[in-house]
Structure formats: C-alpha cells, structure tokens
Computed example of a mutant assay.
Amino acid sequence: MYSKLKKNDFFCPVLVNRIYDRSKATTKLSSNIPMNFQVFSQCPLPSNTKLEIVKTNFKYEICNIDKKILINGHNINCCKNSIKDTICIDNKMLSTTNDECNKITFNIIENLNVSFKVEIEIEGIAYINDCQKIYFEAIGCGEDNINAIILSNILIPNPRNLSNNAYLEINNDILGLASPDCIFLSPIFDCKKNIDSLFGNVFLNYMIELDISCLMPSALNLLKSKC
C-alpha cells in the first residue's frame, strides 16, 4: 500500500531487515614486535628498580593495505588499498541459475594484508625498595604487519528477483590489544645508572572482523552514499 505524503511524493513501506542485513566473520591473530619505550616521568628509576605494568593503551595507524576477495571462487575487482568495499553483484557470482530460489549461498574469501604503525602507552609502578613506589608512564612506537584469510558463508536474497542492481558492502574492523602480562621490558641506563628508557618485547593480539551488509539494492546504496 502506498501512502501519499505530498502532491507528487509517495512513500512505500519496506521491511528493512529483508533488504539490509549484516553478517560477521572474525579471525584472531597474534604477533610480537620489539619496541623502545620512552619514560615520561622526570623522577629517576634506579638500576635495581622492579617494574610492574598495570595498564596499557593500544593505538594504530594503517600505512598500507593489500587485499584480495573471492566470491564463489571468482576473483573480485575490489579496492585493494581500503578496508571498505562496495561490490556490485554479477551473474557469475551467483551459485544458482534458478530465479525461483528465494535465497542463494555466497562463499566469501578475503585475503587481507595490513601494515601499520603501532603506538602503546603503558602505566606502571616502579618498586625502588620495600617501602617506596614510583608511578610512571611511558610510550613506545613500532611497526607491525599482519596477514589474515577470512572465510564467510552467507545466505542472501536472490538478486535475480530484484528489478535493479544489488550490492554487497564489505568492511573490515581491526581491534588490537596489548595485555600488560604480555609486555616484557628491559631497562636502558643513562650515565648515572638510572633508567633512561625501556626496551620491550611486545606480544599483540588482533581481532579482524569482516562485516558484510548482505544485500543492498542500488537505490538504497545511493541513498546511503549521500548521507
């Protein structure tokens, strides 16, 4: 049923969850990198200091992306230097030629290679002796590279039943964690044998999500791109 809004405008109600649905696939990776930490605190940390990290803050900046996407075994012309993509559904991607099927299977394989700069802020406590503690902060920077293959099988409404083109929207989300228990520090001393900086071996955990908007008709995709 159409509801009249203005003289020449009509509104057709749509069940959005039947047009625009989402699917996620998640891959977990681990990595370790060497990293130098500069101590912010002005107070000296003697050579006999014992260090305990109590909190970390992980940040990253993507430097380079290389990716490859296959849908139902077909190579897809994608935007290789971006974590986002909008892919127009082509007949060669469809797993069936039967127009009467309400849903079809999409097998998506994404090979994602990302290099980025890593920044880790740490908060810790230096134990000088049995009765003295010093709170300190430090920051370290390094470079890392991860490679992930993400597999996803989804059911989408049959695009052959639509009167216009349909799109898949693919987006990757990368989450990183540097656990305080997985950062191992060695002190670097100045000429007075105080700790000038810290050398660390940092073990990082990554979670990479492939977030898919299962089906987006061209009109909805155009509307979203303008918002």
Rank of each mutant, 00 (worst) to 15 (best):
I108F: 02
F116C: 08
L5E: 14
F106K: 09
S95D: 09
L45Y: 02
D181M: 00
E61R: 09
M35I: 11
L70S: 00
I174Q: 04
S197F: 04
F184D: 10
N165W: 00
G142P: 07
D85M: 07
M1D: 02
I71W: 12
P217V: 10
I125M: 04
D181Q: 09
S179R: 02
D99Q: 08
E143W: 00
D130K: 01
Q38K: 15
K226N: 15
L5P: 00
E100M: 14
D99V: 07
P180L: 04
C141M: 06
I174D: 07
R160P: 01
N171G: 01
K55M: 04
Y60Q: 11
D190N: 15
G142K: 05
N98T: 00
M35S: 09
N32V: 07
I174M: 02
S95G: 05
S115I: 05
L204W: 06
K84A: 05
M93T: 08
L175I: 14
F11P: 04
E121I: 09
G176W: 14
Y167K: 06
E61N: 08
S152C: 01
F199V: 06
D144R: 00
P217R: 12
I53V: 08
R22H: 11
V16N: 11
L215K: 13
A166M: 01
F10Q: 06
Q132C: 14
I19N: 15
F203G: 05
V114E: 03
S186C: 13
S163H: 10
C182V: 02
N145P: 00
I76M: 11
K193Y: 15
I156R: 11
S163Q: 11
C12E: 14
V118D: 12
Q38N: 13
K192V: 01
K80G: 03
Q132S: 15
I83W: 06
V54G: 03
I170L: 10
L112F: 03
A219C: 13
I170Q: 03
S30C: 05
C182W: 03
T26M: 12
T86P: 05
I76H: 04
T27F: 06
K192S: 08
N8Y: 12
I125K: 04
L204F: 08
S179F: 05
S152M: 00
N194Y: 07
L155G: 02
I104Q: 13
D9I: 15
R22I: 10
N107R: 01
E61D: 09
C63T: 11
S31G: 04
T105V: 12
L15V: 14
V202R: 02
H74D: 08
S95Y: 01
N57I: 08
N221M: 14
N129W: 07
F184N: 04
N221W: 11
I149N: 01
I83M: 10
